[in-house]
Amino acid sequence: MTKAKVGVLISGRGSNMAALLYASKRSDCPYEIVLVAANDPDAAGLKLAAAEGVATFGQSHKGLKREEFDAIIDAELRKAGAHYVALAGYMRLLSPGFVDGWAGRMVNIHPSLLPKYKGLDTHERALDAGDTVGGCSVHIVTAELDDGPVLGQTEVAILPGDTPETLAARILIAEHQLYPRVLAELVSRETSPDWLLDQVRERALALPKTTEKSSHGSPGFLIEGGKFFAYFSHDHHGDGITSVLVKTGGPEEQMMLIEADPDIYYKPPYLGPSGWIGIRLDGDDVDWERVEEKLAASWRMVAPKKLAMLF
């Protein structure tokens, strides 16, 4: 099982980091923690992570501009091979460039039922409002504070006589349960055949005059009233591969692509002899721009001249 590589950012004790770390020790967990980094070199969570054999990095942000410090953290995450970032009590506002660099792959846990109570003092605000439940949310990080798409939530009952401290303690238990589960779901999503098919479908059907039709049990994409220009293949005849098949200019181009990047391209059975090529979608990081380009090139090869000239 290939596990997704996750970097965790903390500022203090790192209790949510610890929850993610211990969950990752299960053999069936789809992610592993490859780095724990902090903006305080004395953060207690760094010692815990190091004791558990996880690489750590700690540096104070003091005296550095936000973009400068974020560039340092970004470099450490990428050096560690992180593919996702989990914020776990990271008390720093992030620069737009850093957020953009991890768009869709950075998550945060927040102690309220978003969109309620963004920012600080969430428990006190819930109590002051007379809420009967509080809770926590895991969301994708965007440029706006606590505003990204919510991936999961857990409600926690507010009891008579609760204080911000007693409510926070119970919600923290819920956080430790919720965060590992939601992170596992997120990193697994991009290897799910259904999700991968949706990505191919979105790009193929965005091309002019295209439609979808099953062919030999596989989803195929064709120009309306014309020829197929792409197929989605998952474990075809038990080969264990998930891919999109597209046309090339012929065997010469096909072999050139395979020789240049054999981990991505392969010659598919049946269609391979006629110059089609398979682009694997089951790797660690699919280059969707490349997939989009190859779909468009394949579409142009089968499109009528008048239609092709318009695109």
Rank of each mutant, 00 (worst) to 15 (best):
K118A: 00
L120M: 14
H123A: 09
A126W: 06
D131M: 12
V133K: 00
V133G: 00
G134E: 07
G134N: 09
C136K: 15
C136R: 06
H139E: 02
I140Y: 15
T142R: 01
A143W: 11
E144H: 09
G148N: 05
P149F: 03
P149Q: 09
L151I: 09
G152L: 11
T154G: 07
T154N: 13
E155T: 09
I158E: 00
L159V: 07
L159C: 05
D162Q: 08
T163S: 15
T166G: 01
L172D: 06
H176D: 15
R181V: 09
V182A: 03
V182P: 04
L183H: 01
A184R: 14
E185A: 08
L186M: 14
T191Q: 13
T191P: 04
S192K: 11
P193Y: 02
L196H: 02
D198S: 15
Q199L: 06
R201F: 08
R203S: 03
A204S: 08
L205N: 07
E212I: 03
E212V: 02
K213R: 15
S214A: 11
G220F: 12
F221P: 03
L222Y: 15
E224R: 15
G225R: 05
G226S: 10
F229D: 01
A230E: 00
A230P: 08
F232N: 07
